[in-house]
């Protein structure tokens, strides 16, 4: 199963790769990274039917925000799940995200246990 993480902080990639080291090593999970909303859309568009089933995206990014990305993904690839990860656990962004079709809302610092659970659920429902 392939997921895509979108965050403008480059070290997020290292962090995720290490946190999901076992799952990646055993090939249960494949993780891709994009450092902007634009890059994420390009990655998803490169494949005719993208294999990515789940996108986790930061909200606060230069250029396209996570919320804009969410709307674009939802309109173009309706079967991809999207969850937001944001430093601001505020109601405003939460409501906007859920209204635009986000599956979940994780606040920073990311609780990797709940993130792992979310992904594990995905793996069993596959």
């Amino acid at each position: 199963m392939k997921i895509l993480i979108v965050d403008d902080e480059q070290d997020v990639e290292t962090l995720f790769l290490q946190k999901f080291r076992k799952e990646i090593k055993s090939k249960v999970l494949e993780v891709m990274f994009a450092f902007s909303g634009e890059e994420a859309l390009r990655l998803l568009g490169e494949e005719d039917s993208p294999e990515v089933v789940y996108v986790f995206s930061d909200i606060n990014m230069p250029g396209m925000t996570g919320l804009e990305l969410l709307e674009k993904i939802k309109s173009r690839f309706s079967n991809i799940q999207v969850s937001m990860i944001s430093a601001y656990g505020d109601r405003d962004n939460y409501e906007k995200a859920i209204k635009s079709g986000a599956k979940g809302f994780f606040s920073k610092p990311v609780d990797f246990e709940s993130l792992k659970q979310e992904i594990a659920e995905l793996l069993t429902n596959k």
Partner: peptide, 11 residues
């Protein structure tokens, strides 16, 4: 400071 600090703690 919160973001870099999160990295320090997580890593």
């Amino acid at each position: 400071i919160k973001n870099p600090l999160n990295f320090v703690n997580n890593f």
